[in-house]
């Protein structure tokens, strides 16, 4: 029995290995193709597989733009919500508000995509002018992505804030600190590595998010950092291209694996850093 359970336990490691191998295998095919060079892949800004142009920056720019917008929404609001829940709210208020945040976290991303395209985008177009904001734009996708990531950041930060020992707060109050001073100058710095872990995980989530950007941010690579423009992210590109019946073994097909490999590596590094932060935080207080 133990042997069987051991195999099952190690299976997860094999999943990671097979992710790396399958993505790497196809990506290698892609990079070995005479039409592609590493310098072109990482150094140019046009992505047009039909014309043989593979410059990843055309897709990375959109991923960066939507992620930055999302984090500008999610980090301050998520942190503020966490501070309120952990430092201010009475247990009764917390019991009502926390489940609501959990509901927000549990809504499928495709629903957020609908919300972005049919609620947020029309509002943006009315506010900023329909001539400046397209039907598809990165701003709307980024904003809604921020709402989606907010609960993740607030719940992880709240865990970190609540784990800070009471004695620190009491010491601050004894010195005459107001509640704000105690939370921002004493509790928050003490929980910083936990909050950092939450933010980094938020970044990783934003980079890997697919459905919101596939629906709301536009179809077609566009090297632009202007959030009012339409542009396709790395994830959005994979989803759109593989949605059709893509013939196997073509350069198009293997290029998707190269993009996916990049996504995997970026999120892997971010997740590892986040876990390292959490471990450091645990060492301090638990």
């Amino acid at each position: 029995m133990e042997a069987l359970l051991f195999i099952v336990g190690v299976l997860t490691v094999f999943i990671t290995i097979s992710i790396v191998l399958t993505l790497g295998d196809q990506a290698l095919l892609f990079f070995n193709d005479p039409a592609v060079t590493l310098a072109e892949f990482f150094g140019t800004t046009q992505w047009q597989p039909q014309a043989g142009q593979f410059g990843i920056w055309a897709l990375v720019s959109a991923t960066l733009t939507t992620s930055v917008v999302a984090l500008l929404v999610a980090v301050p609001l998520g942190l503020a919500a966490a501070l309120y829940l952990s430092e201010y709210a009475s247990p009764r208020v917390r019991d009502i508000l926390k489940p609501l945040l959990e509901v927000l976290a549990g809504i499928p991303t495709v629903v957020y995509g609908y919300f972005a395209l049919l609620f947020v985008t029309p509002i943006l177009r009315t506010l900023l002018g329909a001539d400046r904001v397209g039907v598809y734009n990165m701003l709307s996708a980024g904003l809604v992505m921020g709402i989606m990531i907010l609960p993740l950041i607030s719940s992880m930060s709240e865990d970190a804030l609540s784990a800070v020992p009471r004695s620190l707060r009491e010491a601050a109050y004894a010195m005459g600190a107001t509640r704000l001073e105690a939370s921002v100058q004493v509790v928050l710095p003490a929980a910083l590595s936990g909050v950092g872990a939450a933010v980094i995980l938020g970044v990783s989530r934003a980079v890997g998010e697919t459905m919101i950007v596939a629906i709301a941010s536009g179809a077609g690579p566009n090297f632009s950092f202007n959030p009012l423009e339409a542009a396709e992210t790395m994830t959005g590109h994979i989803a759109r291209i593989s949605g059709g019946d893509l013939p196997y073994g073509t350069l198009d097909y293997s290029s998707l694996f190269a993009i996916a490999l990049m996504l995997f590596l970026v999120t892997l590094v971010l997740n590892l850093i986040s876990q390292w932060f959490v471990a450091k935080f645990r060492e301090q207080y638990e």
Binding site: I19, T22, L201, T267, L268
Partner: peptide, 28 residues
């Protein structure tokens, strides 16, 4: 420790990457 770290990492892998894995392994 390796398995544990690995599981935590897998939990954070974007779902679209699992899709690519499924395409390469299960579908093909």
């Amino acid at each position: 420790r390796i398995i544990q770290t690995n599981i935590n990492n897998l939990a954070g892998v974007p779902s679209i990457v699992y899709g690519m894995l499924g395409l390469a392994i299960f579908v093909r």
